[in-house]
């Protein structure tokens, strides 16, 4: 009987979606969600209480283009705070008032916080753009002329000086082989080897 009641409660789930649809507009199943308008329905937001200090960096080797594609997924508010703390302007990313020079500021910040050595050689990073990923921003960075990958040494100081508990997950993928490194305040450098 108890189990039955609990199962009954699962009915809440299908019930939730139509209600939310009604309140917030249709939810999108795939791709970026529509902008839902002012969201602070029930009072001021309390972002500080529910902080989740993580960024995820994906590094994927594109053999055809001989290139490392780096995607930095970072919470948009954290990124903006960090640029402000550097003395930069408030970018207001993904709003109507977003600054024209936003890419330059984001590029400056990210490239000053990351360093890559591929096969033992220090390599230049090139910022190529960014995309809205709801609460986060996906920033795209490339390292060109990489025709083979044996080792990648990485230094990642993204948001490290902003938040004590910042974790920067790094995911590497080279020819189907995947490696993970979890960086943070204690460890800002990591090394991964491939094909060994």
């Amino acid at each position: 009987m108890k189990t039955f009641r609990i199962l009954l409660c699962l009915l809440f789930v299908p019930a939730v979606e139509p209600v939310l649809d009604l309140v917030l507009g249709p939810a999108s199943v795939l791709g970026p969600a529509p902008v839902l308008g002012p969201v602070s329905v029930l009072g001021p937001a309390t972002a500080q209480a529910h902080v989740f200090y993580v960024s995820i960096v994906r590094v994927k080797w594109n053999a055809e283009e001989a290139r490392l594609d780096v995607t930095v997924r970072i919470f948009t508010d954290d990124l903006e705070e960090a640029i402000l703390a550097e003395g930069g302007p408030r970018l207001r990313l993904w709003t109507d008032q977003a600054r024209e020079d936003r890419d330059r500021h984001v590029a400056d910040y990210l490239l000053s916080r990351m360093a890559f050595r591929v096969n033992g050689q220090e390599r230049e990073l090139a910022y190529t753009g960014m995309e809205d990923a709801l609460d986060a921003t996906a920033c795209l960075v490339q390292i060109t002329n990489v025709d083979r990958v044996e080792t990648i040494e990485v230094e990642n100081r993204i948001l490290i000086d902003m938040f004590d508990t910042q974790a920067n997950v790094m995911r590497f993928e080279v020819g189907g082989e995947k490696k993970y490194v979890n960086l943070g305040k204690g460890t800002v450098k990591g090394l991964v080897r491939f094909g060994s």
């Binding site: 979606e17 999108s28 795939l30 969600a33 969201v39 029930l42 009072g43 937001a45 309390t46 972002a47």
Partner: peptide, 12 residues
Amino acid sequence: RVILVPSDLVET
């Protein structure tokens, strides 16, 4: 992404 609710509302 079957359901999407804005973070601010969820936190409240």
